[in-house]
């Protein structure tokens, strides 16, 4: 009897976790996947990582159905997933750098954006700077909110944004010269 009740409770938890995860997916999938696509520079990888983030949200909710999971939690998980992917790729040198393959698609997206190859600039940045720049200017968080998500201070976020801009500006100037 007791094990039956426990089974019911587990099923309830699973159902609640699935429903809440679906709600999170509906609300955040586009922004989160786009953020990840900019972070890693590849649509397919971004989609994989997005799914991993939601899967991880599901598991967290299944373990604790009362837990509040907000966008910040998803962005933190997404950023960590992207950072570990980038580091792994750097170490292993196994996966191709799809930025080159994906370049034409980025250009379409950025038509009119002063013809600058933002993705090429992002590819030159340390991953922490990319995260700070995208979290604020792309995802729309303030520096304090981004700092909370990234586990740092607002001033550090601002400084990383500035350093990212230096590289971006350099790429823009290179583009305008060529």
């Amino acid at each position: 009897m007791r094990s039956g009740l426990e089974t019911c409770a587990a099923m309830d938890r699973t159902a609640i976790a699935q429903r809440r995860t679906e709600e999170l997916v509906i609300e955040h999938q586009t922004k989160l996947a786009r953020y990840l696509r900019r972070m890693v520079g590849d649509a397919e990888v971004a989609l994989d990582l997005t799914q991993d983030v939601f899967l991880s949200a599901y598991r967290t909710l299944q373990a604790d159905p009362a837990r509040e999971l907000r966008a910040g939690w998803l962005y933190r998980a997404a950023t960590n997933a992207a950072i570990s992917f980038m580091r792994r790729r750097k170490i292993l040198h196994v996966l191709p750098l799809d930025r080159d393959l994906d370049r034409s698609a980025w250009r379409v997206d950025e038509h009119g954006a002063q013809s600058v190859d933002l993705q090429a600039a992002l590819g030159r940045l340390p991953v922490e700077q990319t995260a700070a720049l995208l979290m604020t200017s792309y995802a729309g968080y303030s520096s304090s909110e981004a700092a909370q998500i990234l586990g740092t201070t607002a001033d550090a976020v601002r400084q990383r944004v500035c350093r990212a801009m230096k590289t971006l500006r350099h790429v823009m100037n290179e583009d305008s010269l060529s």
Binding site: A33, R34, R37, L47, D109, E110, A113, S137, L168
Partner: peptide
């Protein structure tokens, strides 16, 4: 440039 890229994003995963 970043805001423009965001506004012109067309990818709908």
């Amino acid at each position: 440039v970043v805001a423009q890229a965001r506004d012109q994003e067309q990818w709908q995963p």
